[in-house]
Nucleic acid binder design. Sequence first.
DNA 1: CTCGGAGCCTGTCTGC
DNA 2: TGCAGACAGGCTCCGA
Length: 272
Amino acid sequence: MPELPEVQTIVNDLQILTGDTITGFWTDFEKAIKTRNFKKALVGEKIKSIKRLSKNIVIELSSNNAIIIHLKMTGKLLINKQVSTNNLQQKHLHHIFSLKKNNALVFSDIRKFATLELISRDKLSEIEKTKGVDPFSKDFTLETFSKIITKHKNKNIKSILMNQAAIAGIGNIYASEIPYDAKLNPMRKLSSLTSTEIRLLHHSILKILTKAIEMRGTSISDYRDANGKKGGFQNQLKVYGKAGKKCHKCDTIIAKETVEQRSTFYCPTCQK
DNA sequence: CTCGGAGCCTGTCTGC
DNA sequence: TGCAGACAGGCTCCGA
């Protein structure tokens, strides 16, 4: 599910929980929780800040520990006060954080891939070091990006975009949409890119992710923001999920190929 | 070391 | 209509 724009949208929505206190925790799926005594360590803690780390949501607590959540494919975090409960949400509701001011933060997850963990500040710094550069950090310059391209010169565009240790936050949807915007074939080997093409790709990463955040993310089927609403970027998708349809620029049929076990979509004419 | 493949789960869609 | 199989936004682990 959520890639950078979706996680960022959720994190933005969750900001209203800053300063609130966790008063309880309930779960019916312990397996998702990677920390022992999770509940005990949480209750009574105040939420200091909520931020995004790659595709993770990090809730920093007054104890200096942090809850780190990965939504994986179908995880949803919903501020309960503003959510209409329907049967589907109830069925897949697996964790609830009770809160003093905002009633509750509800966690649902159809495929049960999502994980929650309580980590120390040191552990958080360690995890941060394993992540590549975030496209929205000041470090994501053309120069840095060019170095990443050089370092992974034997890989292709799709795989470098998906590599979290190189560039943090891009997943399978945007890893198809970004090359389309840059008019580059996702299977192009990085060593073959000219400096102009590298600049185009760098530009498209920022352009597409920025637009997607403005539209509050992409809802293919399951993704919802923290208020339970769909995003809008699915209406802007040019190639993802469009195999067999015409490219809106040139009428060529959009192709689908598997790259590293993930579906990849592109226009064979527009993308060189 | 890198790399491909399996695995984690449930739901939906397609084709026979 | 029934049902098997493929596929789905992510990531980790394992063996070769």
